[in-house]
Amino acid sequence: MKRLLALTASALCLGLSACATDGSRSEPTYEAAARNELVSTNYRAADVLLGQLRNLDNEGPMLVATLVNIDALERSSTLGRLVSEQVAARFAQQGRAMVELKLRHTMYMRRTEGELALTREIAEVARQHNARAILLGSYGLSGDMVFVNLKVVQPGNNLVLAAYDYALPLNREVRSLLGLPG
């Protein structure tokens, strides 16, 4: 009888483990979403930039441009747009005036690319808003990482006021935001 129970338990364990590896996954929970590190990683990057800008005056708003793929500067992705949005949100939370370019009808925008602007056009928008700086950046893919470069640049003379580099894991989530297969 004990032997039969042991065999039944072993078969049950094997069956359960087969179910766990059949490729199906359970839906994410709110708790798992709250533990997600993408937002906090981008907020930390924004905090580093803000620390570098601490000695600069906070007069005049900042523009935000979508992060672009470093290998194709005219293209972005959901990841590039999301990182820009999250970093801009953190700047606003810390008291920086941020100009939302998506609300401009005259801004050069591609529906799938975000706020990618021609250099002369971004300079004109900066002038119209009396913007003191532009938050911009790029990302590049490696085998298992996405390297992100963020900069705060002064319009007109292109002087870099702050810069920060960091890496994101090229996991399933980030692959999805880049539009890459799982």
Rank of each mutant, 00 (worst) to 15 (best):
L82E: 14
R96A: 06
E31L: 14
N58W: 04
T21F: 15
I70N: 12
S142T: 15
G143Y: 11
E113N: 04
L53F: 06
H105A: 07
A34I: 05
A126H: 02
G114A: 05
R132C: 02
S77D: 09
L53Y: 01
A72V: 06
T21S: 11
D165F: 04
N158E: 13
M145R: 15
L116M: 01
E173N: 10
S176W: 07
F147W: 08
S24P: 00
N157Q: 11
D47S: 10
D71C: 00
G114K: 04
F91P: 00
L14G: 08
L177R: 04
T119Q: 14
G143W: 08
M1R: 09
L141C: 02
S77Q: 05
G156T: 07
V99C: 03
E100Y: 14
P169S: 09
Y164W: 14
A6D: 10
V99E: 04
L180I: 14
A97Q: 11
V99R: 06
Y108F: 07
L180P: 10
Y108N: 09
L103V: 05
N157R: 10
L178Q: 03
R127L: 13
M98C: 03
N158L: 12
G15M: 11
N171W: 07
L5M: 12
S17T: 14
L12R: 03
V39K: 11
E173A: 12
E173F: 13
L150I: 06
L150A: 08
V68K: 01
S17C: 12
R104Y: 14
S17M: 13
P169N: 09
F91Y: 08
S26N: 04
N149K: 09
R172T: 15
A20R: 13
Q128T: 01
V99M: 09
Q154T: 12
R35P: 00
R75W: 00
R110Y: 06
A133R: 06
T112N: 12
A92N: 10
I134P: 03
C13K: 11
R110V: 11
V48S: 11
T112D: 08
D47F: 02
M1E: 12
G182N: 11
